[in-house]
Amino acid sequence: MTAQLPQSQTTSGSDLYEQDFYLWIQTTAELLKQKNFTQLDLENLIEEIETMGRSEKRALESNLEVLLMHLLKYQIQTERRSKSWQYTILEHRRRVQKSLKESPSLKPDFDRVFDESYQTARRLAVIETGLDIATFPEQSPFTLEQVLDSDFFPKS
Rank of each mutant, 00 (worst) to 15 (best):
S8Q: 15
S105W: 09
Q77W: 03
Y17S: 08
F136S: 07
L42I: 10
F136A: 08
E61T: 13
T10Y: 13
H92G: 00
S62Y: 02
D149H: 11
T2S: 13
S105L: 06
Y87T: 12
L68A: 06
S8G: 10
Q146S: 05
Q39V: 01
L124T: 06
D111L: 15
E79T: 09
A29R: 12
I133S: 12
Y17G: 06
E48L: 10
T135L: 04
Y118G: 08
F153C: 02
Y87A: 14
Q75S: 14
Y17N: 06
N36Q: 14
S99C: 08
Q75Y: 02
L23V: 02
L45I: 02
K155W: 02
F110Q: 04
L124S: 13
T2I: 07
E48A: 14
R93T: 06
N44K: 14
S150Q: 10
L100N: 03
D109V: 11
E116D: 13
F152Y: 15
M69N: 04
I133F: 06
E61K: 15
R94H: 13
F114I: 05
W24P: 10
L42E: 04
D109E: 13
S62H: 08
E56D: 15
L32F: 11
A59T: 11
V147W: 03
K57N: 05
R112N: 14
T143L: 02
S117N: 08
Q7T: 05
L131A: 07
L32I: 15
S99D: 11
S55L: 05
I49G: 01
Q97H: 09
I133C: 07
E65C: 12
Y74T: 08
M69L: 07
K33I: 02
F153V: 11
W85A: 10
L144K: 14
R112M: 10
Q9S: 15
S103Q: 13
A29H: 07
M52K: 11
D20H: 10
Q39T: 03
Q4I: 12
F114W: 07
D20V: 03
E145L: 09
K35P: 00
P108W: 06
Q9V: 08
R81L: 11
Q77N: 11
L16E: 01
K98P: 00
Q9K: 14
T10L: 14
Q7F: 02
F114A: 10
A134Q: 14
H70D: 09
S55F: 00
S117F: 00
L64F: 11
R123F: 02
S84M: 00
F37E: 02
Q146V: 03
D111K: 12
L148Y: 07
K107S: 10
F142W: 03
Y118P: 09
L16W: 01
T2H: 07
R95Y: 07
S55G: 12
E128D: 15
E65Q: 15
